[in-house]
Simulated scan of single mutants.
Amino acid sequence: MTHPTDGPEMVPADRFGPPQDDLQRLWTPHRLVYIGGQDKPADPTPESCPFCRIPAGDDEDGLVVARGADCYAVLNLYPYNSAHLMVLPYRHVSDYTDLTDAETHELAAMTQRAMRVVRAVYAPAGFNLGMNQGEVAGAGIAAHLHQHVVPRWPGDSNFLPVVARTKSLPELLADTRERLAAAWPTA
């Protein structure tokens, strides 16, 4: 024990952390903000919606890959895989049936373009496409419709998500955004 004026007691580093075992740990503390809901909107209004704020900012900072007249493509901040994009309307709308004809058409066309660009840059073996309509259906931000475009490779669902609830991603989001934006056709 130390005297109060001697400062804190020095504790060996090996007294911290998990007990010794045969497991290696991949620490992903950046995921805690997602788990804790830190980046989720406080309410369903456009003023609280990150998908409404992103297009008003810089494409690089907002991870915007491409823009259309009615929709835009953005990287998922918490991706399932590298190059996980979302295609969404600029307009704050939650239900697929409430899209205008122009939004529906551009959402579909931009999803196709996203698949072509991701194929050209990353050569995935397949894709998962989907919209979670409503919080009960798994929408992280239910107030603003978004179409997920998730590239898939053989064996990409490995032990980490199953055992450790952790996803290993081999590339930084800024690098992914740069590669996809450079390959995105302008016409």
Rank of each mutant, 00 (worst) to 15 (best):
M1S: 14
T2H: 10
H3T: 14
P4L: 13
T5K: 08
D6E: 14
E9T: 14
M10W: 12
P12N: 06
P12M: 07
R15T: 11
R15I: 02
P19V: 11
Q20T: 14
L23K: 14
Q24I: 02
R25T: 13
L26E: 05
W27I: 03
R31E: 10
R31W: 02
Y34N: 00
I35Y: 04
G36P: 01
G37S: 06
P41R: 09
T45P: 00
P50Y: 03
R53N: 03
R53H: 13
P55Q: 02
G57D: 06
D58W: 08
D61H: 13
A69S: 14
C71I: 09
L77A: 04
L77G: 01
Y80I: 08
H84E: 02
M86I: 15
P89C: 10
R91I: 05
R91G: 09
T97A: 15
T97G: 12
T97P: 00
L99W: 09
L99S: 11
H105C: 07
E106P: 02
L107G: 07
A109Y: 00
Q112P: 00
R113Y: 03
A114T: 02
R116I: 00
V117F: 11
V118C: 05
R119T: 15
V121D: 01
A123F: 04
G126L: 10
F127Q: 03
M131W: 06
M131N: 08
N132K: 05
Q133F: 11
G134I: 13
E135T: 15
V136E: 10
G138E: 07
A143C: 14
Q147T: 01
V150W: 07
V150A: 07
V150L: 07
R152L: 10
P154R: 14
N158L: 00
L160D: 02
P161L: 06
V163M: 05
S168T: 02
L172I: 00
L173Y: 06
T176L: 01
T176A: 04
L180N: 03
A181V: 05
A187F: 02
